[in-house]
Structures are given as structure tokens and as C-alpha cells.
């Protein structure tokens, strides 16, 4: 990949770890827009992102990877549009502990379909330890049925090396496509 800065978008349902992922990767304190949650989110956590998260990561070759997190709730889909503008690829985080992770994945793949088609995506499955089901297998099956193959990892969105793996994989996928 040429030595140009890149912009990566993090998407996925509320509570899947988008803000955490960006926080643990970013070289700077994350620009966050968390407010008190009043919707169903409240059952899981106190606050929720309503506009965006922003941080950046400098790679060894000196280029910057700008990291943008999107709000999870679909009422904020206008922010998805705004934030993907000029983006290089998508990290989709899926929460394994939600009732229907496969439906969540398909929803966001549909919502970001055009962006993913033009760029690329990787999927991280978070909170796997809180689910007794084989979510990895379930999501793989769902992807196969959809006819879309994407790199997929089980991750802890609070762990540097896990999130780094997602971003490095995405960058590798993107540079292979060029």
C-alpha cells in the first residue's frame, strides 16, 4: 500500500465493543460522543455513542490509520453515511452474547453493502466467552449462504493484539485487492 493515510470505520451493534476497540488502538485519547443511554442499551451499559468515536494509529512506516467508530443504533444511520465517506474499509464487530448475532451481522452487511463492495471488511466476534453457542460456526454458515467470504476472528475488543489483528488483516486484504 502506498504511504498514504487511511481511514477505517468500525461498525456493529450497540455494546459490541467499537469504542473499546478504538480506545485500545488509538495513539491519542479517543474523541468520544458518549451520552447517557435511555433506550434498551441501558440494560447493558450506562452510556452510548451518538455521533462518533475518533482516534488514530501510526504504523511503523509512519502512515496514519484514522479510526472512526459509528453509533450502533440504526436511528443513527445518517452518521454511517457521513463517516464512511472516503473510508478504506470496515471492521464489523458482532456481539456473540446478543440474541441473534447472525441477524445482526446480516443487518450491518446490508446497511454497509455498498461501502464494503467498494472497499473491504473484516468481522470480529466479541464477547464470545459470554455465549455457549458456536457463534463463529453460525456466522461462517450465514456468510456462506450469503455467498460473501470475509475474514472472521473471535476477539476481545479490549485487547490491543486482538483489535490490531483485525486492522492488520483488513489492511492486508485491501492491499491485496489493489
Amino acid at each position: 500500500m502506498a504511504a498514504a493515510d487511511s481511514k477505517i470505520i468500525f461498525a456493529g451493534p450497540v455494546g459490541s465493543g467499537k469504542t473499546s476497540a478504538i480506545s485500545c488502538l488509538s495513539d491519542i485519547p479517543v474523541v468520544s460522543t458518549d451520552v447517557d443511554a435511555s433506550d434498551e442499551t441501558k440494560a447493558r451499559k450506562d452510556t452510548t455513542t451518538v455521533a462518533m468515536d475518533y482516534g488514530f494509529l501510526s504504523l511503523e512506516d509512519g502512515t496514519l490509520v484514522h479510526l472512526y467508530g459509528t453509533p450502533g443504533q440504526d436511528r443513527f444511520d445518517f452518521m454511517w453515511q457521513i463517516l464512511t465517506e472516503g473510508g478504506l474499509g470496515l471492521v464489523l464487530l458482532i456481539d456473540a452474547a446478543r440474541p441473534d448475532p447472525a441477524a445482526d451481522m446480516l443487518f450491518y452487511l446490508d446497511a454497509f453493502e455498498k461501502f464494503i463492495a467498494e472497499t473491504g471488511a473484516v468481522i470480529g466476534i466479541s464477547r464470545v466467552d459470554l455465549s455457549e453457542r458456536d457463534i463463529y460456526g453460525l456466522l461462517q454458515q450465514s456468510l456462506i449462504e450469503r455467498g460473501q467470504l470475509l475474514p472472521m476472528f473471535e476477539v476481545d475488543a479490549r485487547k490491543d493484539e486482538d483489535v490490531n489483528l483485525l486492522v492488520q488483516t483488513l489492511l492486508a486484504v485491501l492491499s491485496a485487492e489493489v
Binding site: T33, V35, V50, M52, P71, Q73, R75
Partner: peptide, 17 residues
């Protein structure tokens, strides 16, 4: 109202930050 509610909170949160 749903759309403008979401936009209002996003705008205000980002501006406040």
C-alpha cells in the same frame, strides 16, 4: 421526529466534545 431526534443528539454531542 425520529430522524431529527437522532441528528439533534449527534450534533450536540459532537459540538460539545
Amino acid at each position: 421526529p425520529r430522524r431529527f431526534s437522532a441528528m439533534s443528539s449527534a450534533l450536540l454531542a459532537l459540538s460539545t466534545t
